[in-house]
């Protein structure tokens, strides 16, 4: 058994959504840890709180209560500016529907987060090209999203998420809109990133077929962790 350093520590995480008269409890005080280099799948039926959990970890939303500690930093206490800085420099995010900017080429979509760090133009362009080549899009640098297939757009989104060498890569059902072949290719790409670069990946998935790619699966049902199963090299303490 290999012990790894904790990269995410979630404790008693609660997320409620309030409408005028109704409070919907989506996450009910869940706690778990994720370790550096892990490929973790968050699974569960619809409405179980998978995406909500991911949104809290990726700092796209504020939890109602509880704590999220990333790399030893309590991120729920960060202000807006600090959150933006943390997202830019430590996290990468891949959306279900690609969400790349239609007016930018593949290359521009990829380098924009790096450009925002104040990096030298030559460096960020080379890095973006390197990543696009890595995801198999060396021939698509100057293509706009409308000229790319769904699988290709998702690869651009993955390259964009990796441009600032994130500590954690989050993905919210990244293959949900893709055909079987493209899905397989994207999952292979994630696995390769995880294995070769020791990239920590936290992915929401509803597809049981994808369990084979994960080191560990956190299963949620009705806002609570039903179980955690390890499949590969890394286990929880």
């Amino acid at each position: 058994m290999v012990k790894k350093e904790e990269i995410i520590v979630v404790k008693d995480l609660v997320k409620n959504y309030k409408t005028e008269s109704v409070v919907t409890k989506v996450l009910k005080a869940i706690s778990f840890k994720i370790y550096k280099g892990e490929f973790v799948g968050i699974m569960g039926p619809s409405g179980s709180g998978k995406s909500t959990t991911l949104h809290q970890l990726a700092l796209l939303d504020q939890p109602t209560s509880g704590s999220v500690n990333i790399k030893g930093k309590e991120v729920t206490k960060l202000n807006e500016k600090e959150l933006a800085f943390f997202r830019l420099n430590h996290l990468g995010y891949v959306f279900q529907q690609y969400r790349i900017l239609p007016e930018l080429t593949s290359l521009e979509n990829v380098f924009i987060p790096r450009k925002a760090t104040g990096e030298n133009r030559k460096i960020y362009i080379n890095k973006a090209k390197e990543l696009l080549t890595r995801v198999g899009l060396s021939h698509r640098y100057n293509h706009k999203p409308s000229e790319l297939s769904g699988g290709e757009q998702q690869r651009v989104a993955i390259a964009r998420a990796l441009i600032n060498n994130p500590d954690i890569l989050f993905a919210d059902e990244p293959t949900a809109n893709l055909d079987t072949l493209s899905s397989e290719q994207i999952m292979q790409l994630f696995k390769e990133l995880n294995k070769k670069s020791n990239q920590t990946i936290v992915m929401v998935s509803h597809d049981p077929e994808q369990i084979k790619y994960f080191d560990r699966v956190i299963k949620l049902i009705d806002g609570k962790i039903k179980d955690e199963k390890s499949y590969n090299k890394i286990t929880s303490k």
Partner: peptide
């Protein structure tokens, strides 16, 4: 939507 995405990838509100 694009404004949200830009924020999600770490682009500051100010920018």
């Amino acid at each position: 939507s694009q404004i949200g995405i830009l924020q999600a990838i770490g682009i500051e509100k100010r920018t």
